[in-house]
Simulated assay, not measured.
Amino acid sequence: MANSAWLLEQVSVNLVSLVLVCIVIASVIQGAVRGASGSAQRFMQFAAEGVATVVSVVVAWKLADTLSPQLQSWLVAKRIVIPNEEIGFFQQMLYTFVTGVRDFPLLRVGTVFAIAYLACKTILVRLWLFIALRTGLLGSIGSASRSWMSSGVGGAIGSLIGCGRALLLIACLFVYTALYPETPFTNYVKSSGLYMQGATQVIEPVGGELLASRLPVFAKAVGDEFNHILQRKYEVIDARIPSDIAEAAKQIAAPHAGDEAKAKALYQWVGSRVQYDYDKVQLYEEKRIWKEQSPEETFATRKGVCIDYSRLYAVMARSVGLDVKVVTGLGYDGQGGYGPHAWNEVYLADSKEWVPLDSTWMSSGGNWFDPPGFDKTHIRDA
């Protein structure tokens, strides 16, 4: 986006303003071609769709707010259990989505909102079309008069439609600038006089301040929840626990009593038995080839990278009754920076808390089972 903004800056005419002008001119030409009757019909359609959109948004928001808790209760009552067997890609996606709707509020509200919005707008548009056809509001455009006066009136009506379309584009750009206020493209957009007129005189008075203050917060919340959903996929694809892994985990945990002792024993086993696969990292860094592997492959080869350590630990921990998560984010690289990393969080029922652990780093030395300052070297995505 930065390079695109630089290229745009080399053009003397602001392309945002140019696009806005072209939208209006194109609408004027369309109106003149349609004539007064055809343009009037198109204007009514445009206005009807606008009203239907606003009404649908309001209705869908109210329904989402009302039905979201009921949907969650219904899904919880269903007691959805991911099968302990090999499942296909589409089943993985289905379980990830359904359990995500059950557990993540923004996804649940968004799903209900989208369904309600589409249903409501479809009904309203079809109802308007039915009424318009029955009352003769939508006649034959081709039979409309093409006199100079008709074309002039049609062009005037087209200009109104064009202004409406331009304002829609300005609203979209306003949302972008609110979400990314410091980007070069945002600065370029704000250098457009036409954009600034529409944004300051129409969008901001209607709801610009609310959008500018709430959108970044909402976008961050959506991003955080999306990362949770991405992490959920590991729970789905690793739901099947191979018998050899389960047996090994039970033998490791058997001499220990309590969740913490079992969790720590598994952490030490994974961290000391699995070797870091530098060849896998090199293959990705040099050739961009990612070698995806299952916990079963990691257990068999005793080699892997951070995500492989974390997935194997999660499967072993679940096989002895522990509640565990695979967490993705950034890990300190020891040189003043951070890089992509994965680790685990395990729930200790005795203390009723989630504690972090990093079996990958344990293999390099040190204690990384809930040490002080863990969050200073590990920054989770969500």
Rank of each mutant, 00 (worst) to 15 (best):
G88C: 06
Y95G: 04
I82F: 10
K78Q: 11
E85A: 15
L106F: 13
R102I: 12
G88W: 02
G100S: 09
S73I: 04
I87M: 14
T99E: 10
I115H: 01
E85P: 00
T111N: 06
S73F: 00
L106H: 07
N84E: 15
F97D: 09
M93Y: 14
L75Q: 08
V76K: 06
F113N: 08
L107E: 06
T99W: 05
E85I: 01
F113G: 02
W74R: 07
I82L: 11
Q91F: 00
V112G: 02
K78W: 12
G110C: 06
K78M: 12
V101N: 03
I82G: 01
L106V: 11
V101I: 15
D103E: 13
A114R: 09
F90T: 13
F97P: 03
L94I: 05
T99Q: 11
Q91W: 14
T96H: 02
V81I: 11
Q91R: 14
I80N: 05
I115D: 08
G100M: 05
Q72I: 01
P83E: 11
I87N: 15
V76F: 01
F90N: 09
I80T: 12
I87H: 15
Y95I: 00
L75Y: 05
M93C: 08
T111A: 09
I115C: 07
F90Y: 15
K78A: 11
Y95Q: 05
G110A: 09
G100Q: 06
P105S: 10
L106N: 07
T96W: 06
V98I: 14
I82E: 00
V98Q: 11
A114M: 12
P83A: 09
R108I: 03
F90S: 10
G100C: 09
K78P: 00
T96M: 13
F113A: 02
I115M: 05
F90I: 09
V76T: 06
R108C: 00
T99D: 01
Y95S: 03
P105R: 11
G88Q: 10
L106C: 06
A77D: 14
V109H: 10
T111L: 05
G88N: 15
F104A: 06
V76A: 10
I87A: 13
T96V: 12
F97Q: 04
V101M: 03
L75A: 04
G100L: 05
P105L: 03
K78T: 10
I115Q: 03
N84H: 13
